[in-house]
Amino acid sequence: MNLKTLFAGLSFASVIVSCANDDPSTLIDTTLITGLATYNQNVKSIIDNNCVVCHATVPKNGAPMSLVTYDQVKNAVLNRGLLTRISLENGNSSLMPQGGPRLPQTTIDVIAMWQQDGLLEK
């Protein structure tokens, strides 16, 4: 293996690792949601804790778009397959957060509930 290939591999691995967030404090129990799920009350913290590291105001690590505002996240759900991407199995190269691990199902369920409830902001 030449030095160029090794460097490229290590660079790719660092991007993959830097986009994952497996902090147990970000887990959300959907049974605690009363009423309709909203972006501000239920979804924003999930996106901020798991996605904004790459999907920042100025996207990093190859992220194609920002996910810092309500409109951006709503658009990602409606037009960019956000729910599909976060629902893929570990090991799938399209799984988000990039490189996994997959978000807990209860966290994914919050975003699905938000979509089902009409993608309300407040």
Rank of each mutant, 00 (worst) to 15 (best):
Q115R: 07
K4T: 04
I33R: 06
S94C: 07
L32I: 07
H55R: 08
D22Y: 00
S45C: 01
T57C: 02
T26C: 11
Y70C: 11
A112P: 02
K44W: 05
L103G: 09
S93W: 15
I111R: 12
V68L: 05
N92F: 03
T5P: 02
P59L: 06
T69M: 11
L120R: 00
N90I: 15
L83E: 03
V58C: 02
G91K: 09
N90Q: 14
D117T: 13
I28E: 02
L67R: 00
L10D: 07
A37K: 09
S66N: 05
L3Q: 11
Q116S: 12
I111K: 13
S45D: 05
S25I: 01
F7R: 11
G81R: 06
L3K: 00
M113I: 15
C54H: 09
D29E: 05
Y39T: 08
V53S: 14
T57M: 03
V43A: 04
V77I: 14
N75T: 13
M96K: 05
S66M: 03
V15T: 10
I111L: 15
R80N: 15
L103S: 08
V53N: 13
T30S: 03
V15Y: 01
I86A: 05
L67E: 10
S66W: 03
G35T: 02
M113C: 14
Q116R: 12
T69V: 12
N49S: 13
T69W: 11
S18W: 15
C51G: 01
L27Q: 06
C54N: 05
L88Y: 12
V68E: 09
R85H: 04
V77G: 01
K122C: 01
A37C: 08
S94Q: 11
T107L: 05
P97N: 10
M96L: 14
T26F: 06
I46D: 01
I28L: 01
L67D: 11
T31Y: 02
V53P: 08
K44N: 04
H55L: 05
Q41R: 14
N40R: 13
P104K: 03
